[in-house]
Amino acid sequence: MSTAVELRHVSKVYGSGPTEVHALREVDLSVRSGELVAVMGPSGSGKSTLLTIAGTLEEPTSGDVFIAGQQLARLSRHDRARLRRRSIGYVFQNYNLLAGLTAVENVALPLELDGVKAKVARAAAMEVLAKLDLAERAARYPDELSGGESQRVAIARAVVGERRLLLADEPTGALDSLSGETVMRMLRLASNDGVAGVVVTHDAQMASWADRVVFLRDGRMVDQTVPGSGPDSLLTPGANA
């Protein structure tokens, strides 16, 4: 499996002098295609900062970011913008759908912005919506969708086209447990299709859908779960007898 995103010794300092904040300190993280990683940690530990840097929306103060093997710092502004548009999808807590566009228009938008013909973009958008069980909601406007549906449309928009990296900041924060679970199932589905996913959440149940959970504290990655190391005793006959 190829590495979709890699952070090497990434640090981020906001401000300077007495007001400076070390939001990230020497973070190393790499996420493979098809892998879903959850990021947990207390408020202010640097989770959102990690996500915006992995998503090329912000630059690290020091350290390197690689997307699909390309070192970001070596790309021109233009190439970086194109990479961001074509390869990376974002999902936020408050959905960020454009109110004047229907669900399918929202999903098609990133492709159209990238120069794909309207008809082709629309067909691709419909295909993703159908996959996420939203075909019947395609013609609705955001204010005619429930929170859970809006978030699923946002996920559809984030994976449409050839996006290989999906970044989500508290995508289930405003949802009830079952809608949150549906959203996590969709993220899992996307990663089963080969998309690399990074999800920030403070909710352990949501995080438990990930292959790997990493823990931040004061800007440092202090720990992570080891895949498949949970006790198999859940399914061992007689474990509780």
Binding site: M40, R185, R188, A204, Q205, A207, S208, W209, A210, V213, F215, R217, V222, D223, Q224, T225, V226, S229, G230, P231, D232, L234, L235
Partner: peptide, 24 residues
């Protein structure tokens, strides 16, 4: 203490991952 709490947290989240896999 933070390290101790984290060790317990990691263990519990790993158990939750196991249950969630079962659920899926």
């Amino acid at each position: 203490l933070p390290e101790l709490l984290q060790a317990h947290r990691r263990h519990l989240v790993q158990v939750m991952q196991e249950y969630t896999r079962l659920k899926s």
